[in-house]
């Protein structure tokens, strides 16, 4: 029964990739990739039933509201959407979430965060981008800071991080800055991912059956 489900139905999902391949390229086990598939199917059929995660579905999952826009959620969606075709496919979902796994290499987390903050994808985090991100955060929170305070915080952060003093933060400067301030990448680790199989226990039984049949 398990095999029937896995071979005939999953292979019809656009962008479906073999869990053993995905497990070999990420910190996830095959069972965990199978559990992520269950999560993926739930998310990807929440609005448009096509087995692909659209931005609205991503926003609905994050905020319980399909229309809520958020600069950072937009950037994360764009980074997950590696093929840049407007949807997150299963392989993209698993590989991207792999970076957020507690056991993923620190280097990968640092690099992903850099790309997240490099809003205009110039290869650098620029002062204007940093200020734009601070303003975006203030816009969605109750935190009120005067423009002078914002300028002062952005200036100081830039002075500390831009060690080459060329007006932009490159990847090496970012890496050095994060090493000094590890809290900066705490968002890059999702403890949930260590328990993903437990979060979807119905899948474990099915996966065990499939493995026995193999």
């Amino acid at each position: 029964m398990g095999c029937y489900f896995s071979t005939s139905k999953k292979s019809k999902i656009p962008g479906y990739e073999d869990p053993t391949v995905l497990a070999s390229e990420t910190p996830f086990t095959v069972s965990e990739v199978e559990a992520l598939y269950e999560l993926y199917m739930k998310l990807s059929n929440s609005i448009i039933e096509d087995g692909l995660i659209h931005k609205e579905e991503f926003q609905l999952a994050l905020f319980r509201n399909r229309n809520k826009r958020n600069l950072f959620a937009d950037r994360i969606f764009d980074l997950f959407d590696v093929k840049r075709n407007g949807v997150i496919e299963f392989g993209e979902f698993v590989r991207s979430l792999g970076v957020f796994h507690p056991n993923a290499p620190l280097e990968d987390k640092i690099a992903f965060a850099f790309r997240l903050y490099d809003l205009r994808q110039t290869g650098y985090i620029e002062r204007e981008e940093l200020k734009e991100m601070v303003l975006a955060l203030l816009n969605e929170s109750d935190l009120v800071l005067s423009d002078d305070m914002i300028e002062s915080i952005v200036d100081k952060t830039f002075k500390d991080a831009d060690t080459k003093d060329d007006g932009k933060i490159d990847q090496d400067e970012w890496k050095a800055f994060v090493t000094q301030h590890p809290s900066l990448i705490k968002n890059m680790t999702l403890p949930y991912l260590k328990d993903i199989s437990m979060a979807f226990p119905s899948f474990i039984a099915r996966t065990e059956v499939e493995e026995q049949e193999l």
Binding site: K42, F63, N70, M133, L137, E140, S183, N187
Partner: peptide
Amino acid sequence: NNLNAFDIISFSSGFDLSGLFEDK
């Protein structure tokens, strides 16, 4: 004033991917 701009940014709800794992 030891506030770091990146620490402030990290408070954004857009960074919290836990919603993906919550039962809807």
